[in-house]
Simulated assay, not measured.
Amino acid sequence: MERVNTTEIFEDHRPEFERLAHTQEFVNFADNSKISQLDELPIYSRDSEVAFLDKYDTPTRNRVLIYATFTLLKEALTHQRHAAWPDGYLHMVSIPGWWEREPFGAGLMENDGSQWLLQPRLWIGNFNSTVVADNFRMHQGLSIAADFTRSALPIESKEHVFESYSRQYGDESERIERVYITLPGSPESIIVMDS
């Protein structure tokens, strides 16, 4: 199948995405004054809100959702006249949903971006809070999930993809918890450089 241009699809559906951003209050959310530690806001809450993308396959829809969230974050910050890192607050995109438990505890299902719809989010962390500053770290994006995320972004943003891991529910190994997309100007101190 021929790869579709996520930028073109986003622009074709910009009015729908702008309605979503307005409904989800992206511009107000980008104003960080009320964030005490961490907060996230998904680009959509119900699948029906992104039904305008149903004509595309799942990988394409996910790439467009990632690109749209990234673009709308940049635009919301521009509207608020904020940088990516104003006064200790980090603004970025977070993307959870890379794995989930199978029904009845039969194992794990992993998502490489083609299995089910992802729900990208605006993410704000208040690094003036010692809880956040002392505990939040990202790693270089080396996973299949990070590669998939890079495939949705413009060339100049591909080096801004990171990830975090978790070990939950008695897992023996760590799983990708979230993939993050930072904006230029984000601090490097929260990135763990893997050797």
Rank of each mutant, 00 (worst) to 15 (best):
E2I: 15
E2V: 15
E2A: 12
E2T: 13
N5S: 11
T6C: 14
D12W: 11
E16T: 07
E18R: 13
E18S: 10
E18F: 12
R19P: 06
A21D: 01
A21K: 00
H22A: 14
E25K: 15
E25L: 14
F26E: 03
V27R: 09
V27P: 02
D31C: 09
S33D: 12
K34N: 12
S36P: 05
S36A: 12
D39K: 09
D39W: 07
D39Y: 09
Y44M: 00
S45R: 15
S45I: 11
S48G: 08
S48M: 10
E49Y: 05
E49W: 06
V50L: 03
V50H: 01
F52R: 06
L53E: 07
K55Q: 14
K55M: 10
T58E: 14
P59K: 11
T60C: 04
N62C: 10
R63Y: 03
R63F: 03
V64C: 06
I66F: 02
A68C: 09
A68S: 13
T69F: 04
T69H: 01
F70A: 07
L73E: 01
E75T: 08
A76C: 03
A76E: 08
A76K: 00
T78H: 07
H79R: 10
Q80D: 08
Q80I: 03
A83S: 15
A84D: 04
P86Y: 02
Y89M: 03
L90F: 07
L90N: 06
H91G: 01
H91S: 03
M92V: 05
M92Q: 14
S94A: 13
P96A: 12
G97D: 06
G97K: 11
E102R: 14
E102S: 11
E102K: 15
L108W: 13
L108N: 14
M109F: 08
E110N: 09
E110D: 12
D112V: 08
G113W: 01
L117N: 06
L117M: 13
L118K: 01
L118D: 00
G125P: 03
F127W: 10
N128E: 11
V131T: 12
A133Y: 10
D134Y: 10
D134C: 11
N135G: 14
F136V: 15
F136C: 09
H139T: 12
Q140L: 13
Q140F: 10
Q140S: 12
G141V: 01
L142K: 14
L142N: 15
S143F: 01
A145Y: 05
A146Y: 04
F148P: 04
F148M: 09
T149L: 05
T149Y: 04
S151T: 07
A152W: 00
L153M: 11
L153I: 10
I155T: 13
S157G: 07
K158H: 09
H160G: 04
H160E: 11
F162H: 06
R167W: 07
R167H: 08
Q168F: 08
G170K: 02
E172K: 06
R175G: 03
E177Y: 05
R178Q: 05
Y180H: 14
Y180P: 00
I181R: 00
P184E: 11
P187H: 08
P187R: 07
P187K: 08
E188H: 08
I191Y: 04
I191V: 15
M193A: 13
M193G: 07
M193I: 15
M193W: 08
S195C: 09
